[in-house]
Design a binder for these strands. Structure first.
Lengths: 235, 235
DNA sequence: TTTCTTATGTCATACTCATGTTACAAGATA
DNA sequence: TATCTTGTAACATGAGTATGACATAAGAAA
């Protein structure tokens, strides 16, 4: 389950690569900022504190390694994961090795899909492997199993939930009692591309049909009039 | 066939080495935990029961040899393979280390690739012994024999499965009910070599043709729409 | 209370995109 | 060499979902 868009800083001087990569990354849901040289990259990194930095080793002015070192020295940027783009395979050991502290690297010419896969992997590593999100949830008679993506009521299996339905239920059950506005749910579960909040109502409706005894009088997913929805574990 | 990520415990006090090694190991598909000194290492070993331990001989507090001895004495950790890191090439200790029950050793400064190769070798040796993954799986009418890499249905042999097909089936059958995303399967079964998730679909399709009565209505490898696949042992 | 306004519930349908499937080429194996 | 495996691309299909219309319920105002 994903929260808001991850912000990526791309430090690369070749316009063609910047253009292509930005596009691909945005397609994958990242918010991309780019810098043409090292100084600008460093400045932007400090200013915007991105969630991840893609750094070309060969840059005009300050080279990638110096930037990497700088970034690792300053407390504001110390923990931001860095993926290096490098031309030569020989550079690899220096980069990843003990000193520089890049989190991963990709050698040019690189496969865009590979870079995206590594970005995702790095993100996964960064994101606290909070077991909380993987743990089974017991909410009164309802049980939610994120591993199998199945919900049961009093031990009896419920109708299969679709992806969105399950994510919605899981998110709300993780925070019982908390009121979620429709916009929150759209952002978190849907990934923010949609602006029609009525979409949420319909999904809630379908979900209720599957988990509530009487969908007309819901007891788990409760409407908070004028605000949104809340999950009531008591049922 | 490798199951989920192998968990490695790295006991090493130098942060640079920890960072570099963790990265390389994770890149090779291991899940790395690290401890800064001997006591912590021992505690973590007992707690988490890793699949392998990389142990620096020179450590603050309890030294590597004592830990090795401790680990070999306790039944919970007796069978965990250990690779020693030693500083001096002509260190007599390394012999003692092997006598103490380390499975292999690497001298510092070491080549990361060499260490990874040794880890792999140790793992391969070890895996022969781990029953869990080698044990025959009975999933309803399906039987999966990892040793012979053969699957049978109701006793009758199925068409021969290719390497990828078998690994895929084996992994999923080891965790019935669990939903695997395509990217999980790519990471685990394919390693990091491939990035096109459609590859998984095609492999699943081929596998279904061989194990399902009606591949159009699969009962073993079930699609979870918008998420991935899951293995249903009932059939 | 009654009426009015607005938010929410519900339904039907079209559309989008994930998945199934096939074919082919490249790579691996023998 | 020939054969088998596997990744990639292209096309076909269908599940899931967005959308708009309408119905209903909640709260506000009279």
């Amino acid at each position: 389950m994903i929260g808001l868009k991850e912000r990526v800083l791309l430090v690369e001087d070749e316009p063609g690569i910047v253009k292509g990569l930005s596009h691909s990354m945005e397609r994958d849901g990242y918010q991309v900022t780019s810098a043409r040289d090292g100084e600008e990259g460093l400045r932007l990194a400090l200013q915007t504190k991105p969630d991840m930095i893609i750094l070309d080793l060969m840059l005009p002015g300050m080279d990638g390694l110096s930037i990497c070192r700088e970034l690792r020295q300053r407390p504001q940027t110390r923990d931001i994961p860095i993926i290096m783009l490098t031309a030569k395979r020989d550079d690899v050991d220096r980069i990843v090795g003990l000193e520089m502290g890049a989190d991963d690297y990709v050698t040019k010419p690189f496969n865009t899909r590979e870079l995206l896969a590594r970005m995702k992997a790095v993100m996964r590593r960064m994101k606290r492997r909070t077991d909380e999100e993987d743990a089974r949830i017991n909410a009164g008679v309802l049980t939610i199993d994120p591993e199998a993506r199945i919900a049961t009521k009093s031990g009896a299996p419920l109708p299969e939930l679709t992806a969105k339905e399950f994510d919605l239920l899981h998110l709300m059950a993780l925070h019982p009692g908390r009121v979620f506005e429709r916009e929150d749910l759209l952002r978190i579960v849907w990934g923010m591309e949609h602006y029609d909040t009525r979409t949420v109502d319909v999904c809630v409706g379908r979900l209720r049909k599957k988990i509530e005894d009487n969908p007309a009088k819901p007891v788990f997913i409760v409407t908070r009039w004028g605000v949104g929805y809340t999950f009531n574990p008591e049922g």
